[in-house]
């Protein structure tokens, strides 16, 4: 993977048909970023098919950031923050939005330059705009993860997070991975020059053919806000949380046992267990949005999810993707 990487070429946006230009359509912006990071050699993945609070939760980031194997991935991840719902009435806040996530392990020496070129690729002119790297120490208590980096500002607006992962799932990153997270709606509002997220042009067409972000998502924001704040059944959520927690622990135990039985020391069921950890994390966010978790309980829930993610991270290191080498099966 390492020797044949070419520096991505910045496609002149003029070559694209108008509806595909990143400054004209939301999807054009996504496609431009995908193209850029594909040119760099990333595997371009599709969103993870579970509810997550951020692109970081995708196993392609959380788990793949662990262990010694090189990894380059880029993908869009729909992210759910139940507490940020505003019934579609706030022009900037959404309970469901898109992140574009890039993970490069090990972090390349020119990561900052790569990032800046990606902004150029979506039409940000560096001679016109004030790009700044402002200190931001990133920490995810539920993932047992932290890193150092910056918020990336464009004319005073935070458009990305840039992090050198130091620890994920309670495990030291070795080597360190670089993570870039682009807030797609914000960036799109920026390059399209609109003030309200629902006014974003989604498909780059005009007139009757134009589909806005509001056309796609306004109703869903309204409905999910009702759900998140008023109707989600908290008894069920609590039950589901505990189910997911138990399931995660059980799957990890079963996968470890199977590895022992096979005699190769390879953990056999990390990814399904990690799904349960993701699930527990989202259920916690929903419970939090419903306001049924007190301050001290909150801490204990966070710790419970962290315990799961730590256990998953440790188990992942005992898999092939985590860098483990299968022991020769014993003849016993």
């Amino acid at each position: 993977m390492s020797s044949t990487i070419t520096t991505p070429t910045t496609i002149s946006t003029g070559e694209l048909p108008p509806h595909m230009r990143p400054e004209r359509s939301f999807q054009g912006l996504i496609l431009a970023l995908q193209r850029y990071w594909a040119d760099y050699g990333c595997v371009v993945l599709q969103p993870y098919d579970m509810e997550v609070g951020a692109g970081t939760f995708h196993p392609a980031t959380t788990l793949r950031a662990l262990g010694p194997k090189p990894w380059r991935a880029a993908y869009v991840q729909p992210s759910r923050r139940p507490g940020d719902g505003r019934y579609g009435e706030n022009p900037n806040r959404l309970q469901h939005y898109y992140q574009f996530q890039v993970l490069l392990k090990p972090s390349p020496p020119d990561l900052q330059e790569l990032y800046l070129k990606s902004l150029q690729a979506i039409g940000v002119d560096m001679a016109l705009h004030d790009i700044r790297f402002v200190e931001d120490d990133w920490e995810s208590p539920t993932l047992g993860a932290w890193g150092l980096g910056w918020e990336c500002w464009c004319d005073g607006m935070e458009v990305s997070q840039f992090t050198y992962f130091q620890q994920v799932c309670g495990v030291e990153c070795s080597p360190v991975a670089g993570e870039l997270t682009y807030g797609l709606e914000r960036l799109a509002m920026y390059v399209q020059g609109v003030d309200n997220v629902y006014d974003l042009n989604f498909n780059g067409r005009d007139g009757d053919e134009r589909v806005s972000y509001g056309d796609v998502f306004l109703q869903s924001e309204q409905e999910y806000s009702r759900h998140n704040f008023e109707h989600a059944n908290t008894d069920n959520l609590l039950k589901h949380f505990e189910d997911a927690e138990r399931e995660c622990v059980a799957l990890l135990a079963a996968g470890a046992k199977q590895g022992e039985e096979a005699g190769d020391g390879i953990h056999k069921m990390v990814l399904p267990a990690y799904d349960q950890c993701i699930k527990a994390s989202h259920l916690f966010n929903l419970l939090d949005a419903r306001g049924v978790i007190s301050v001290t309980q909150r801490q204990s829930y966070i710790l419970r999810v962290r315990d799961l993610s730590k256990a998953c991270g440790e188990a992942f290191l005992q898999t092939e993707a985590g860098g483990a080498i299968a022991k020769e099966a014993s003849n016993a």
């Binding site: 900037n92 001679a127 016109l128 004030d130 004319d155 607006m157 003030d195």
Partner: peptide, 22 residues
Amino acid sequence: SNLVASDGGKAIVAGNQKVVRA
């Protein structure tokens, strides 16, 4: 800002105003 912009800073001011407004 950290830049002598080619438009004299118009875009930078506009961007910052937008964030301040929000």
